[in-house]
Each structure stands twice: as structure tokens, then as C-alpha cells.
């Protein structure tokens, strides 16, 4: 499975680079940092059916950092939720692939864009499944910067109270937020301890190590009756050396030369 997920991650990175460049859009850094997490999720972890996106028993995946949706759209298209040719419409006039994740896209459960919304919604989905005795799980991918939002901590407090073992949070901990380093804006460390203090089961992994991510996610829930939080240590802009750990790539879109260089690095065709 690791080969398949590696291949998917590389292809999704290439598509995301092309999409953002074409749309003159932003947020490549965060799209690249979470690409490996998405690739692992969509190659065997999530129980989903690309040909049947509304399958009632599917696991629900929510992207809370909706601005980084280019790599999610790419991952979904590459897995067959919709044609990859549609990716070229990203951010274009009239497209359903708006530059913040949109629930009108097959495979997308929930629109976000304003931060701190998906986890409370996910808590509701998980509580609903629990009350109805349904077996599906809810996975919510958060950015680190959006953990500044109080609404997330309301939901983090709530989930263990109701023993939502069917809820999994992934934190894309790339340590750079909108205007600077997380440590300089609002330090989150010790993040794992914070989640543990809120009564979550917590694991930390290298968010680019597919085997480690898969091993962790395949074992949820890690503790009976508790929600799981996977803190994925990632690198913003991962895969393109001149984008890595550079705040500017939260905003910039690559020019033609930069796109060609970036595509070579991620293994895509220019």
C-alpha cells in the first residue's frame, strides 16, 4: 500500500502545483504539507467508494483547513471521485472547485474556509453515528494555526465527554501559520500534552512517513471510549525545496519557471 500511497501523493502534489499556478491561487505550502496524510487516508484507511460518494456507511473525512484544498481535490480526482480533467477548472469562473473546499464536489462532505468549523461539525457527525449505532468513523484534518480558534477547543473538550471513539483528528503540524511561525504567533507546544489533558488518546508521527501514518490510523481507536488525535509533524511546502518552510508559499503562486522546477522535484510532468 505504501507504493500506491507514495504514487498518489506524488501525483496529487503535481496536480496541486498545476492547479494553483493556473488559477494564480494561494496556499500551496499547506496543500503540500498534508499531501502525504491524504494519500495514506485515501489508499486503504478511509472506507469510501469513489463511484458511490454518498454511500451511507462511508467514513466521513472533513478538511478543516479548507484553503489547502488543491491537494484534496487532486487526491479525490486521482482516486476516481470525479474526472481529473475537471481539476483544470480549479478557481476558474463558475467552477465547483472553488479555492476553499466545497461540499458540492463529489467526496467532499463539508465546505470550510473559515477556520475552526469542521471539528464541531465532525463532533456532531460522530455523535449522530454513535446515537444511531452506526459503525462509520469521522476523520477531521486540522491545521496547526487554526488551533488558535476557540471553537476547536470547545469541540476538543466535548468529544471525550461523550466517548466519541469514532472520531479521529489529524493535525497537520507544519509549524507555520498565516503571518509567521506558530511558536512566534501563539505557541501550541506542548500540543500532545494539551490533547492528553483534554482526555484524548494521542500519537505523534512523521507526517511524511506513510508507513507510520498508516500504522497509526489503522489502529484507531487507540484507547477504548476515547477520540484519537494524530499529531503529524510535517514540513510546509514539502516536496519542493524552494517552497519548504517558506512563509511566502502560503500566498504565492508559482510562475512558469518555478512550476517547471517544482514539478520536476515532485516527479510530475511539466
Amino acid at each position: 500500500m505504501s507504493g500506491a500511497s507514495q504514487q498518489l501523493a506524488a501525483a496529487a502534489r503535481a496536480e496541486a502545483l498545476r492547479m494553483v499556478a493556473r488559477a494564480r491561487a494561494s496556499h500551496l505550502g499547506g496543500a503540500l504539507s498534508m499531501a502525504d496524510l491524504l494519500a495514506v487516508l485515501y489508499t486503504g484507511v478511509l472506507r469510501v467508494r469513489p463511484a458511490e460518494p454518498e454511500w451511507p456507511e462511508r467514513d466521513r473525512f472533513l478538511l478543516s483547513k479548507g484553503h489547502a484544498c488543491a491537494s484534496l481535490y487532486a487526491t479525490l480526482a486521482l482516486q476516481g471521485f470525479f474526472p481529473t480533467t475537471e481539476l483544470l477548472t480549479y478557481g476558474q469562473d463558475g467552477s465547483r472547485l472553488m479555492a476553499h473546499v466545497c461540499h458540492r464536489v463529489p467526496g467532499v462532505e463539508f465546505s470550510t474556509g473559515s477556520l475552526g468549523h469542521a471539528l464541531p461539525f465532525g463532533v456532531g457527525l460522530a455523535l449522530g453515528a454513535q446515537r444511531q449505532g452506526q459503525a462509520h468513523r469521522v476523520f477531521v484534518l486540522l491545521s496547526d494555526g487554526e488551533l488558535d480558534e476557540g471553537s476547536n477547543w470547545e469541540a476538543i473538550l466535548f468529544a471525550p465527554q461523550h466517548a466519541l471513539a469514532n472520531l479521529v483528528v489529524l493535525v497537520d503540524y507544519n509549524r507555520i501559520q498565516s503571518l509567521g511561525a506558530v511558536s512566534e504567533v501563539l505557541e501550541l507546544a506542548p500540543l500532545a500534552d494539551k490533547f492528553r489533558a483534554f482526555r484524548w488518546a494521542v500519537r505523534e508521527v512523521d507526517g511524511h512517513d506513510h508507513d507510520a501514518v498508516r500504522t497509526a490510523l489503522e489502529a484507531v481507536p487507540w484507547e477504548p471510549g476515547r477520540p484519537s488525535c494524530l499529531i503529524a509533524h510535517t514540513v510546509k511546502g514539502r516536496g519542493v525545496d524552494f517552497m519548504q518552510n517558506r512563509l511566502a508559499w502560503h500566498y504565492r503562486s508559482p510562475n512558469e519557471t518555478e512550476l517547471a522546477a517544482a514539478l520536476r522535484q515532485v516527479g510530475g510532468t511539466p
Partner: peptide, 12 residues
């Protein structure tokens, strides 16, 4: 959280 989870419950 109340309103967000209400939306989630509604989706369920």
C-alpha cells in the same frame, strides 16, 4: 460547538 455539532447531527 453547539451550532456546529447541530449541523453535524443534522447531516447525520
Amino acid at each position: 460547538n453547539l451550532t456546529g455539532l447541530a449541523a453535524g447531527l443534522a447531516a447525520a
